[in-house]
Design a protein around this nucleic acid. Structure first.
Lengths: 120, 120
DNA sequence: CAGATATATATCTGTCAAGGTATATCACGC
DNA sequence: GCGTGATATACCTTGACAGATATATATCTG
């Protein structure tokens, strides 16, 4: 998986853009309004997403309509796949382990409690 | 999903650590060797992973054994979930769409532009 | 053509993170 | 306790990146 996918997704504004584009394509000025960021800043974020292959642009007159391109996300999903086995069996396994070694849990905000199949 | 998860995963060294820890827990010096990074650098990466809740540490004498903590990855998986529908139906849907609108797929790099006074 | 609108780019600046070196901390064997 | 090995932290320097302002480019309207 290319490095650009990770660095593009690391920024919250860009993830917010993707969350919007996931529902429907948007023109730039719509995204500017939704993000509350300046227009140049938004354009720069869109450029990063474009170069990472996460979005593509269509011209509509003087507007540019941005739409999502899910391929890199599918790659991310592929990267995640081998880990999936871990938390599947961890949900009961890890809970037991944490009971025995509570010092191993660092001050993290809030992680899913013991075994709760439908979290998030 | 906490910002720390993304920023922790954005670094290739830290992803490499996770790839190692996915298989089995490792002591720090093992990770140092595997990454080819310096020991302080490795420790710093481990700290970031720890604070992101992606790994936890167990003491074994004077060693620290790091093991993976998949909960944040499960959260990432949850973030990814709503996008999954996109590339699932994209596989046939998008293909049909592209047949109808081939101009939409042009990489904006070399699209023939109208009258350009000083191109290249 | 002029002017307005939509978007991109250039430039600067402050912030933050990564890598390196040196050093501190902690556990071990003697 | 002492020297040694394992790991963490402090400090410094450098590079990348986000945000802001100004400007360029392209399109539309009249």
């Amino acid at each position: 998986m290319p490095e650009t996918t990770w660095s593009a997704l690391q920024d919250p504004n860009r993830r917010a853009v993707l969350d919007l584009l996931r529902q429907r394509p948007h023109a730039v000025n719509e995204l500017v309004g939704a993000l509350g960021a300046s227009q140049p800043s938004t354009s720069k974020h869109l450029r990063v997403l474009r170069e990472a292959g996460l979005v593509h642009v269509l011209r509509d007159g003087q507007r540019r309509i941005y739409a999502i391109d899910p391929a890199p996300l599918a790659e991310l999903d592929g990267w995640l796949a081998p880990y999936r086995a871990l938390w599947n069996r961890s949900l009961d396994d890890l809970g037991r382990h944490l009971d025995e070694h509570p010092e191993a849990t660092e001050p993290e905000a809030q992680r899913p409690r013991r075994r709760d199949p439908k979290e998030t």
